[in-house]
Design a protein around this nucleic acid. Sequence first.
RNA 1: UGCCUUGUAGUAUAAUGGUAGUACGACAGAUUCUGGCUCUGUAUGUCAGGGUUCGAAUCCUUGCAAGGCAACCA
Length: 562
Amino acid sequence: MAEETKKEERSLNFLEEIIEEDLKNGKYKSIVTRFPPEPNGYLHMGHATSICLNFGLAQKYGGYTNLRFDDTNPVTEETEYVESIKEDIKWLGFQWENEHYASDYFDELYQFAVSLIKKGLAYVDDLTAEEIAEMKGTPTEPGKDSPYRNRKVEENLDLFERMKKGDFPDGTHTLRAKIDMAHTNMLMRDPLLYRIKHASHHQTGDKWCIYPMYDFAHGQSDSIENVTHSICTMEFVPHRELYDWLIEKLEIYPSHQYEFARRNLSYTVMSKRKLLQLVNEKYVDGWDDPRMPTISGMRRRGYTPESIRDFCDRVGIAKRENLTDLGLLEFCVREHLNKVALRRMVVFDPLKVVLTNYNEQPGETEMLTSENNPEEETATHRDIPFGKELYIEREDFMENPPKKFFRLAPGKMVRLKSAYIIRCDEVIKDANGHITELHCSYIPESQSGNDTSGISVKGTLHWVSLKHAITAELRLYDRLFKVEDPSKEEGDFKEYINPGSLQTIKAVYAEPALKNAKFDERYQFLRKGYFTLDKDSSTSGMIFNRTVTLKDSWKAGDSKAN
RNA sequence: UGCCUUGUAGUAUAAUGGUAGUACGACAGAUUCUGGCUCUGUAUGUCAGGGUUCGAAUCCUUGCAAGGCAACCA
């Protein structure tokens, strides 16, 4: 009875344990989570973790997830970001139940504030930002009460209403909770609830000139939406005490906050501030530069939503600080792409091969066939033209090869993928000793699928017919930073940018089947890596982004070292 | 020198008082018409000391280390 649901017993993470406990003891019948981005930037891998967590948990336990824009600061937030955030979530494969904005609740929030004032739990302060900071004390010293702390309820009500009406300029008044200026938790030292900002809001326009602070909006919005499990990152742990205090004093639906450690990825940076710098100072091409850890960047790079979700699953969550290996993400990308990418042959750095014993009839082309993907259950194929003159990869030939070099060398044989076995007979060089072409002979009986030659070779090379090759531009991406954790290094993080993070090859030679490349297809250029068509492609030329290289267990160093 | 959080192979994450496991990575091998995929094997770990217990990664205690907290940001 119990065995049908559990394919394999995966252990629960700490949030799943909490939720299962809550469900089991009847605290909730189903759960509600939320994804609460602030619309002031693009989503990145860290957000993807949160999205997978929040939507994944709700899915697993039969609840739902709201998308809620945490838009309480009109001066930094824009509609442009709202759209990109929604697009990114959908692309990742998730659908929210309701689309909300913290700004939808401004009226209710205002009423909450009024009720707090009436209970004598909030007051209008006339102190300046500097004075408030000064009187806040330090983590080791208590703060001092504001001289306005004990105003009468009526006076507070009147002042707060006038704040709302626009009677005061920015920064002259704030609404603060009346808690304890000597509290060991700095956030409980009469935190600000409302501030005056005569600024136009992307949703509410000029209706308001006072805006609630995060602490007076987030938990309250959770409560209004009956969010059961409000999941955020560890830096909000100290906020939980205030989160609970406000809900208790307001006597509203008790949402609960749980914290997990944000995910860090090696060889990149994740803070909005740093990513913004990379964009503004032109270290990258924009928010969707394929080297960026943004969702749009990863999408353009060719990462699939499946692989990102798989990555988030495999990494899991916990509460300790972490730096996850970028290699794991790349593994997930390769694993998925291996299953879905169409195989194509592309020569990056051509070396001409002439098959001296191959007879070519004018006007006739021998067509060979090759599978699109050996992983497919039912194989599909494409045709590839063969010819007397071919290109192979220059690095696939060595005049004086080391012992374990399985590729082409004078007198040695290799197979051309899906074609014939060839033998290198002669190396042709120019006056400078530079190799210009190879003269080879092919074994007619060795044709792929009809091989009666009895010859077995160790190496197989990719190739293209010189006459039929089409050209394309390639953008080879590598990790953005040279060091594992740029933000932990001395000095400016930008000093650690990998100068070789983008290498462009203007013209490579590809088999003609690549002419029909589509934006939503993924390709494996045989023995080279996974690629996808870039949006910069035009009718005049195709441009491919390298998503990730193939795993390469052949140590070039073994041979090149000497 | 206050409060909060966290310390398990290189990395990430399990074990919830009872055999320290899994994945990625590394290394070795098999297989291969991609030096890919797949398969097999190997190495590497509980921050330190003390205590409770038949038994501690787990509970207690003292240290140590890392991170967070003093924005009218979220």
